[in-house]
């Protein structure tokens, strides 16, 4: 896969994830856009790969954040007296 396609895929995946972001989609989208635009002139292929790797790490982190948020909410609602 070319870097261009990889970056676009990553951006789309993150945008999709951002729809459920607690601080709102717009908040997430603008920051995401800025982060990508900041590095738009990078041409060194090694650096690009490192950044894609970082992006994929963020994807995992956001997924983990959502999962934890849901788990904690449910735990608080249904398992209060166990603590």
């Amino acid at each position: 896969m070319s870097h261009r396609k990889q970056v676009i895929d990553l951006y789309k995946t993150l945008l999709h994830l951002g729809k459920e972001y607690p601080s709102g989609y717009e908040y997430f989208r603008s920051r995401l856009h800025n982060a990508f635009m900041k590095n738009k002139d990078v041409t060194d292929s090694e650096k690009i790969e490192k950044m894609i790797g970082h992006g994929q790490y963020i994807v995992k982190e956001v997924e983990a954040l959502y999962m934890l948020k849901k788990y904690r909410t449910l735990k608080r609602r249904y398992y209060r007296d166990n603590q």
């Binding site: 995946t13 999709h16 994830l17 997924e63 999962m67 788990y71 449910l74 735990k75 249904y78 398992y79």
Partner: peptide, 12 residues
């Protein structure tokens, strides 16, 4: 129950 597993996120 809640602690059975951690559901995966449906990816794009």
């Amino acid at each position: 129950d809640l602690r059975l597993n951690e559901p995966r996120y449906a990816t794009l």
